[in-house]
Nucleic acid binder design. Structure first.
Length: 560
RNA sequence: UGGGGCGUCGUCUAAGGGUAGGACGUCAGACUUUGAAUCUGAUUAUCAAGGUUCGAAUCCUUGCGCCCCAGCCA
């Protein structure tokens, strides 16, 4: 928001900290994804917040791969995460992995045992769960809770040495089994996992859990403001407990603090990594970078720009209020970016043949069209014009309703940048479908100008010689505003069956056949399109529709 | 029915004792060689009830509603 004086609540905290001299005025944030999936638009919010804050306050922001669970994490994901952050336009100060700290974390754990504040528990997972109690019943102390420091140290070292199978024992923090906050009922901080880790290989068979690893990693890196999402709110006391008992100087304020904000939710989509993965695994979509996915890669391949994603994160703000933003806001962000930056072009998605009966056969002329109506410096291009052309099927109606500005029998319209044409006759096939229009053009209106009369409609067009291109029309993946709202039904029941339409027979102006992969265009009167880098071939591009233009005619019809 | 959070236009988000502002959406109009863009204008909100105060979205009390927590996931 450009309110100016309206700081978001994190900025307010930082400015207050700077005023009081907390952290010696330092700002050091971090973006800590777990490398177990691809980044999505929700991460983009966290990324631009953390990197943006560091930039705004002259601080630093680290990228830290939170890789404490060897069974779910893969190198493939750490590479994609880095690529996506760079594409978004951010550069990290330090690149770290939680696994960099396994040695230090282990030492912290031994220290906790020495302080008598952690113990090795032999209870099995189900037993731990039973002994923990529930929201209304306090937990009970584990029978192993009062082992001596020596015994705990010995057992913990043997856990590390690989003497016990997975699940046999855990290291637990000794806090309070009767706490009303279940997170303080002696949370597990180390578990046994005889699993290969993507970076440390087989060096470890015990791995720290999030609550233990995350806060201490923050402390090790000198993070000042550790921003996470709302669901971590009731773990903050645990965060504080661990940091305060283990980090030297923590009590004096020389430590990181956790702040929670609302995650980004958007209408007509799901955001959890688990659900996105399910869409990929069940082939509902064609991979993590399917243009319908709200992953960074998917959005990128759909034709969203990094600037538009950054813009969205600015507009949605930062609050603690659980919210769901209108996906239309994202669409508006990319429209605004592409309206000023995308060159214009003409493409006919569903061609309808037009023959200009009074235009000489065999004649062709090159007509100049502006590449951008508001930016003459972007120049013009030549588009061939001839006796046979294509216009959009939607742009003709034999019996038009009131308010239809386009072509119909006896009506004159302008072909953009070319001539006025009038429809004289309609040719139909045996089934009565309109297959061709016989029209006349007015040579005096070259360039689309006439001094003596006006026309209501201006249509885009391509010459009959125009190359064919595949165009993919994408729409939102789900038909329901909140696909997860109905507890009784799976989110996949709300998929939009029309989220992808492939048009193999679109015709594009010649320039577009040479479009470089990853280039953006506005196809006039239709929307913004992006040359797909994966599907397209040289001279044979595939265009993904990023978003339509706003269309008040569609709205008008909807009212009828 | 334990604990932790959150309630402001349709959707988001500002204002933190002194004119409830902005964005997106919607509606109406102007302009238009994109039914786009642009420009005008309009509509609509402080969860409820009490209290304090000259004055409450803001402070207090009591309700109500929604979200999160009982992984050896993060």
């Amino acid at each position: 928001m450009e309110a100016g004086q309206g700081l978001n609540f994190i900025q307010a905290i930082i400015e207050e900290d700077q005023r009081t001299g907390k952290h010696s005025g330092r700002v050091h944030t971090r973006f800590p994804p777990e490398p177990n999936g691809y980044l999505h638009i929700g991460h983009a919010k966290a990324i631009s917040l953390n990197f943006g804050l560091a930039h705004q306050y002259g601080g630093k922001c680290n990228l830290r791969l939170d890789d404490t669970n060897p069974t779910t994490e893969e190198t493939e994901y750490v590479e994609s995460i880095q690529e996506d952050i760079r594409w978004l336009g951010y550069t990290w100060d330090g690149l770290y992995y939680a696994s960099d700290y396994f040695g230090q974390l282990y030492q912290f754990a031994e220290e906790l045992i020495r302080q008598g504040k952690a113990y090795v528990d032999d209870l099995k997972p189900e037993e731990i769960s039973q002994w923990r109690g529930d929201f209304t019943t306090p937990g009970r102390d584990s029978p192993f809770r009062n082992r001596s420091v020596e015994e705990n140290l010995d057992l913990f070292r043997r856990m590390r040495a690989g003497e016990f199978p997975d699940g046999a024992r855990t290291l637990r923090a000794k806090i309070d089994m009767r706490s009303p906050n279940p997170n303080l009922r002696d949370p597990a901080i180390y578990r046994i996992r005889h699993a290969h880790h993507h970076r440390t290989g087989d060096a470890w068979c015990i791995y720290p859990l999030y609550d233990f690893a995350h806060c201490l990693s923050d402390a090790i890196e000198g993070i000042t403001h550790s921003i996470c999402t709302l669901e971590f709110e009731n773990r903050r006391v645990l965060y504080d407990w661990i940091v305060d008992t283990l980090v030297p100087g923590a009590k004096e304020g020389n430590r990181p603090y956790q702040y929670e904000m609302a995650r980004l939710n958007l209408t007509y989509t799901v955001m959890s990594k688990r659900k996105l993965k399910e869409l990929v695994d069940t082939k509902v979509v064609d991979g993590w970078d399917d243009p319908r996915m709200l992953t960074i890669r998917g959005l990128r391949r759909r034709g969203f720009t990094a600037a538009s994603l950054r813009d969205l994160t600015q507009r949605v703000g930062v609050t603690k209020t659980q919210s769901r933003h209108d996906i239309g806001l994202l669409e508006q962000c990319v429209r605004e970016d592409l309206d000023t930056n995308a060159p214009r072009a003409m493409a006919v998605l569903r061609p309808l043949k037009v023959v200009l009966e009074n235009y000489p056969e065999g004649q062709t002329e090159e007509l100049p069209l502006a590449n951008h109506p508001k930016r003459p410096e972007l120049g013009t291009r030549q588009v061939p014009f001839m006796r046979e052309l294509y216009i959009e099927q939607d742009d003709f109606m034999e019996n038009p309703p009131k308010g239809f500005y386009r072509l119909s029998p006896g009506v004159e319209v302008r072909l953009r940048g070319a001539y006025f044409i009038r429809c004289e006759r309609v040719i139909k096939d045996a089934d009565g479908r309109v297959v061709e229009l016989r029209c006349t053009y007015d040579p005096a209106t070259r360039g689309g100008n006439a001094t003596d009369r006006k026309v209501k409609g201006t249509l885009h067009w391509v010459p009959a010689s125009a190359p064919v291109a595949e165009v993919r029309l994408y729409d939102r993946l789900f038909a329901a505003e909140d696909p997860e709202a109905d507890e009784a039904r799976a989110f996949k029941e709300f998929l939009n069956p029309d989220s992808l339409e492939v048009l193999a027979g679109a015709r594009v102006e010649p320039m577009l056949a040479q479009a470089a992969p990853e280039s953006h265009f506005q196809f006039e009167r239709l929307g913004y399109f992006y040359a797909d880098p994966k599907k397209g071939l040289p001279g044979r591009p595939v265009f993904n529709r990023t978003v339509t233009l706003k269309d008040s005619w569609v709205r008008e019809q909807g009212k009828a």
